[in-house]
Simulated assay, not measured.
Amino acid sequence: MAFKQFFAALVLGLAVMVAAPAARAEPFRIVGFGDSLMAGFGLGPGEGFPEKLEAALRKRGHDVVIANAGVSGDTTSGGLSRLDWSIPDGTQLVILEFGANDMLRGIDPALVEQNLDKMLARLKQRNIPVLLAGMVAAPNLGHAYGEQFGTIYPKLAEKYGATLYPFFLDGVAGDRSLLLEDGMHPNAAGIDRMVERALPTVEKAIAGK
Protein backbone atom coordinates (compact mmCIF):
# COMPACT_ATOMS: atom_id res chain seq x y z
CA MET A 1 0.00 0.00 0.00
CA ALA A 2 2.82 2.37 0.90
CA PHE A 3 4.49 1.64 -2.44
CA LYS A 4 1.23 2.38 -4.30
CA GLN A 5 0.90 5.72 -2.45
CA PHE A 6 4.52 6.56 -3.24
CA PHE A 7 4.02 5.65 -6.91
CA ALA A 8 0.84 7.73 -7.14
CA ALA A 9 2.62 10.71 -5.57
CA LEU A 10 5.52 10.27 -7.96
CA VAL A 11 3.23 10.23 -10.98
CA LEU A 12 1.40 13.31 -9.69
CA GLY A 13 4.69 15.11 -9.13
CA LEU A 14 5.89 14.32 -12.62
CA ALA A 15 2.59 15.52 -14.06
CA VAL A 16 2.99 18.84 -12.25
CA MET A 17 6.56 19.17 -13.51
CA VAL A 18 5.44 18.51 -17.07
CA ALA A 19 2.49 20.89 -16.82
CA ALA A 20 4.53 23.74 -15.31
CA PRO A 21 6.59 24.49 -18.43
CA ALA A 22 3.44 24.31 -20.53
CA ALA A 23 1.83 26.95 -18.31
CA ARG A 24 4.86 29.22 -18.73
CA ALA A 25 4.81 28.73 -22.51
CA GLU A 26 2.05 31.29 -23.04
CA PRO A 27 3.53 34.46 -24.58
CA PHE A 28 3.16 37.87 -22.99
CA ARG A 29 0.29 39.51 -24.87
CA ILE A 30 0.53 43.17 -25.86
CA VAL A 31 -1.86 45.30 -27.92
CA GLY A 32 -0.65 48.36 -29.80
CA PHE A 33 -3.74 50.56 -29.72
CA GLY A 34 -3.66 53.82 -31.65
CA ASP A 35 -3.92 55.68 -34.94
CA SER A 36 -1.97 55.59 -38.22
CA LEU A 37 1.36 55.86 -36.39
CA MET A 38 0.55 52.52 -34.77
CA ALA A 39 -1.27 51.03 -37.79
CA GLY A 40 1.75 51.47 -40.08
CA PHE A 41 0.31 53.91 -42.62
CA GLY A 42 2.15 53.73 -45.95
CA LEU A 43 4.32 50.80 -44.89
CA GLY A 44 4.59 47.23 -46.14
CA PRO A 45 3.70 44.02 -44.28
CA GLY A 46 5.76 43.58 -41.14
CA GLU A 47 7.10 47.14 -41.22
CA GLY A 48 4.74 48.68 -38.64
CA PHE A 49 5.71 49.60 -35.10
CA PRO A 50 3.98 46.64 -33.36
CA GLU A 51 5.52 44.10 -35.72
CA LYS A 52 9.04 45.49 -35.48
CA LEU A 53 8.76 45.97 -31.73
CA GLU A 54 7.72 42.34 -31.34
CA ALA A 55 10.73 41.22 -33.39
CA ALA A 56 13.08 43.40 -31.33
CA LEU A 57 11.70 42.12 -28.03
CA ARG A 58 11.94 38.50 -29.16
CA LYS A 59 15.54 39.12 -30.19
CA ARG A 60 16.19 40.26 -26.63
CA GLY A 61 14.67 37.08 -25.19
CA HIS A 62 11.10 38.21 -24.47
CA ASP A 63 8.36 35.76 -25.45
CA VAL A 64 5.80 38.31 -26.63
CA VAL A 65 2.99 38.65 -29.14
CA ILE A 66 1.95 42.16 -30.15
CA ALA A 67 -1.39 42.72 -31.87
CA ASN A 68 -1.72 45.77 -34.10
CA ALA A 69 -4.96 47.57 -33.21
CA GLY A 70 -4.09 50.82 -34.95
CA VAL A 71 -6.59 52.54 -37.25
CA SER A 72 -5.44 55.31 -39.59
CA GLY A 73 -7.21 58.61 -39.05
CA ASP A 74 -8.47 57.69 -35.59
CA THR A 75 -8.85 60.35 -32.92
CA THR A 76 -9.14 59.84 -29.18
CA SER A 77 -12.93 59.86 -29.62
CA GLY A 78 -12.69 57.03 -32.14
CA GLY A 79 -10.32 55.10 -29.91
CA LEU A 80 -12.66 55.44 -26.96
CA SER A 81 -15.60 54.15 -28.99
CA ARG A 82 -13.77 50.96 -30.06
CA LEU A 83 -11.60 50.30 -27.01
CA ASP A 84 -13.68 47.52 -25.47
CA TRP A 85 -13.71 45.28 -28.54
CA SER A 86 -10.19 46.19 -29.67
CA ILE A 87 -8.55 45.05 -26.42
CA PRO A 88 -9.35 41.35 -25.87
CA ASP A 89 -9.42 39.63 -22.50
CA GLY A 90 -6.03 38.20 -21.63
CA THR A 91 -4.15 41.30 -22.81
CA GLN A 92 -1.25 41.93 -20.41
CA LEU A 93 -0.12 45.35 -21.65
CA VAL A 94 -1.59 48.05 -23.87
CA ILE A 95 0.58 50.57 -25.69
CA LEU A 96 -1.90 53.44 -25.86
CA GLU A 97 -1.05 55.91 -28.65
CA PHE A 98 -3.58 58.60 -29.56
CA GLY A 99 -3.69 62.35 -29.93
CA ALA A 100 -1.85 63.18 -33.16
CA ASN A 101 -5.02 63.49 -35.25
CA ASP A 102 -6.79 65.44 -32.52
CA MET A 103 -3.86 67.85 -32.44
CA LEU A 104 -3.71 68.24 -36.24
CA ARG A 105 -7.42 69.07 -36.25
CA GLY A 106 -7.01 71.57 -33.43
CA ILE A 107 -9.40 69.67 -31.16
CA ASP A 108 -9.69 71.15 -27.68
CA PRO A 109 -7.00 69.58 -25.48
CA ALA A 110 -9.59 69.28 -22.72
CA LEU A 111 -11.57 66.83 -24.86
CA VAL A 112 -8.41 64.91 -25.75
CA GLU A 113 -7.60 64.57 -22.05
CA GLN A 114 -11.17 63.54 -21.24
CA ASN A 115 -11.14 60.76 -23.85
CA LEU A 116 -7.73 59.44 -22.83
CA ASP A 117 -8.78 59.57 -19.19
CA LYS A 118 -11.81 57.40 -19.94
CA MET A 119 -9.70 54.91 -21.87
CA LEU A 120 -7.19 54.62 -19.05
CA ALA A 121 -9.99 54.27 -16.50
CA ARG A 122 -11.58 51.39 -18.44
CA LEU A 123 -8.27 49.59 -18.81
CA LYS A 124 -7.54 50.05 -15.11
CA GLN A 125 -10.94 48.53 -14.29
CA ARG A 126 -9.90 45.51 -16.35
CA ASN A 127 -6.51 45.36 -14.57
CA ILE A 128 -4.62 45.85 -17.84
CA PRO A 129 -1.38 47.84 -17.46
CA VAL A 130 -0.75 50.67 -19.92
CA LEU A 131 2.26 52.21 -21.57
CA LEU A 132 1.05 55.68 -22.53
CA ALA A 133 2.76 57.01 -25.67
CA GLY A 134 2.70 60.79 -25.68
CA MET A 135 2.44 63.34 -28.46
CA VAL A 136 3.43 67.00 -28.74
CA ALA A 137 1.59 69.76 -30.55
CA ALA A 138 2.86 71.34 -33.75
CA PRO A 139 4.32 74.84 -33.22
CA ASN A 140 1.86 76.45 -35.65
CA LEU A 141 -0.98 75.77 -33.21
CA GLY A 142 0.40 78.36 -30.84
CA HIS A 143 2.10 78.37 -27.46
CA ALA A 144 -1.09 78.17 -25.36
CA TYR A 145 -2.42 75.15 -27.25
CA GLY A 146 0.96 73.42 -27.17
CA GLU A 147 1.39 73.98 -23.45
CA GLN A 148 -2.08 72.67 -22.60
CA PHE A 149 -1.72 69.69 -24.93
CA GLY A 150 1.72 68.84 -23.57
CA THR A 151 0.53 68.44 -19.99
CA ILE A 152 -2.06 65.78 -20.85
CA TYR A 153 0.17 62.71 -21.01
CA PRO A 154 2.35 63.13 -17.90
CA LYS A 155 -0.72 64.14 -15.87
CA LEU A 156 -2.71 61.05 -16.88
CA ALA A 157 0.26 58.70 -16.55
CA GLU A 158 0.70 59.84 -12.96
CA LYS A 159 -3.02 59.63 -12.23
CA TYR A 160 -3.32 56.01 -13.42
CA GLY A 161 0.17 54.73 -12.65
CA ALA A 162 0.83 54.14 -16.35
CA THR A 163 4.31 53.88 -17.82
CA LEU A 164 4.96 57.07 -19.79
CA TYR A 165 6.87 57.29 -23.05
CA PRO A 166 6.76 61.08 -23.51
CA PHE A 167 6.92 61.38 -27.32
CA PHE A 168 6.07 58.51 -29.66
CA LEU A 169 7.94 60.13 -32.58
CA ASP A 170 11.07 60.84 -30.57
CA GLY A 171 14.11 60.91 -32.85
CA VAL A 172 11.95 60.83 -35.97
CA ALA A 173 9.82 63.99 -36.07
CA GLY A 174 11.41 66.63 -38.26
CA ASP A 175 13.92 64.26 -39.85
CA ARG A 176 12.91 64.01 -43.52
CA SER A 177 15.10 60.94 -44.06
CA LEU A 178 12.96 59.01 -41.57
CA LEU A 179 9.56 60.15 -42.84
CA LEU A 180 7.31 59.38 -45.76
CA GLU A 181 6.76 62.03 -48.42
CA ASP A 182 3.92 63.51 -46.38
CA GLY A 183 6.46 64.61 -43.78
CA MET A 184 4.34 63.24 -40.94
CA HIS A 185 4.40 59.44 -40.95
CA PRO A 186 7.55 57.42 -40.32
CA ASN A 187 9.03 55.30 -43.09
CA ALA A 188 10.52 51.87 -42.38
CA ALA A 189 13.79 53.40 -41.17
CA GLY A 190 11.80 55.75 -38.98
CA ILE A 191 9.98 52.83 -37.39
CA ASP A 192 13.35 51.23 -36.67
CA ARG A 193 14.41 54.41 -34.85
CA MET A 194 11.15 54.55 -32.91
CA VAL A 195 11.51 50.93 -31.80
CA GLU A 196 15.11 51.50 -30.77
CA ARG A 197 14.18 54.55 -28.68
CA ALA A 198 11.08 52.99 -27.10
CA LEU A 199 12.53 49.55 -26.36
CA PRO A 200 13.93 50.25 -22.85
CA THR A 201 10.62 51.78 -21.73
CA VAL A 202 8.64 48.87 -23.16
CA GLU A 203 10.88 46.41 -21.34
CA LYS A 204 10.26 48.25 -18.07
CA ALA A 205 6.50 48.10 -18.69
CA ILE A 206 6.69 44.37 -19.37
CA ALA A 207 8.59 43.90 -16.11
CA GLY A 208 5.95 45.95 -14.29
CA LYS A 209 8.38 48.69 -13.26
Rank of each mutant, 00 (worst) to 15 (best):
Gly190Glu: 12
His143Pro: 07
Gly134Thr: 09
Val130Thr: 11
Leu164His: 07
Met184Val: 15
Val130Lys: 07
Ala173Phe: 11
Met119Cys: 10
Asn187Gly: 04
Ala133Ile: 11
Ala188Met: 10
Leu164Phe: 10
Asp182Tyr: 07
Val136Pro: 00
Gly161Ser: 13
Ala189Thr: 11
His185Trp: 12
Pro154Ala: 13
Tyr153Met: 03
Leu156Phe: 05
Met135Val: 09
Pro139Gln: 10
Lys159Cys: 08
Ala188Gln: 11
Arg126Gln: 08
Gly174Leu: 07
Asn187Met: 08
Tyr160Ile: 10
Pro139Trp: 12
Leu141Ser: 02
Ala188Val: 14
Pro154Lys: 11
Pro166Thr: 07
Val130Glu: 10
His143Leu: 15
Gln114Asp: 14
Ala162Asn: 09
Ala138Tyr: 11
Ala157Asn: 08
Gly190Pro: 09
Ala144Met: 13
Ala137Trp: 04
Val136Ser: 08
Leu123Ser: 06
Thr151Met: 08
Ala189Met: 14
Ala137Glu: 03
Ser177Gln: 12
Pro154Tyr: 09
Leu131Gln: 08
Leu178Gln: 05
His185Gly: 03
Thr163Arg: 04
Leu178Ile: 09
Ala121Ser: 15
Ala137Leu: 01
Arg176Met: 07
Gly150Ala: 03
Lys124Phe: 12
Gly150Arg: 04
Leu169Trp: 06
Ala162Gln: 06
Asp117Thr: 14
Arg126Thr: 09
Leu132Ser: 02
Lys124Leu: 12
Leu120Met: 14
Leu131Val: 10
Gly142Trp: 12
Ser177Lys: 14
Ala188Cys: 08
Asn127Tyr: 13
Tyr160Asp: 05
Val136Met: 08
Ala157His: 06
Val136Asn: 12
Phe167Glu: 02
Ala144Asp: 15
Leu169Thr: 06
Asp182Asn: 04
Phe168Trp: 07
Gly150Leu: 01
Phe167Trp: 00
Leu116Ser: 01
Phe167Leu: 04
Leu141Trp: 07
Gly134Asn: 03
Pro129Lys: 12
Asp182Phe: 04
Leu156Asn: 01
Met184Ser: 09
Tyr165Asn: 01
Tyr165Thr: 04
Leu156Val: 08
Thr151Lys: 15
Ala144Tyr: 13
Gly150Gln: 06
Pro166Asn: 03
Asn115Val: 06
Gly183Lys: 01
Met184Asp: 00
Arg122Gln: 15
Lys124Trp: 11
Ile152Met: 02
Met135Gln: 08
Glu158Phe: 03
Tyr165Val: 02
Asp182Leu: 07
Glu158Gly: 13
Arg176Gln: 13
Arg122Asn: 13
His185Lys: 05
Gly190Ala: 11
Gly183Ala: 01
Gly174Cys: 07
Ser177Cys: 00
Gly183Phe: 06
Leu132Ile: 14
Gly150Cys: 02
Ala121Asn: 14
Gln148Ala: 15
Tyr160His: 13
His185Val: 10
Pro186Val: 03
Gly161Lys: 11
Leu116His: 00
Gly134Pro: 01
Asn140Lys: 02
Arg122Glu: 15
Leu132Cys: 09
Asp170Thr: 05
Leu180Val: 06
Phe167Gln: 04
Glu113Arg: 15
Glu113Leu: 10
Gln148Phe: 03
Ile128His: 13
Lys118Ala: 14
Met135Asn: 03
Gly183Val: 08
Met184His: 00
Asn187Gln: 09
Glu147Asp: 13
Asp175Tyr: 06
Asp175Leu: 00
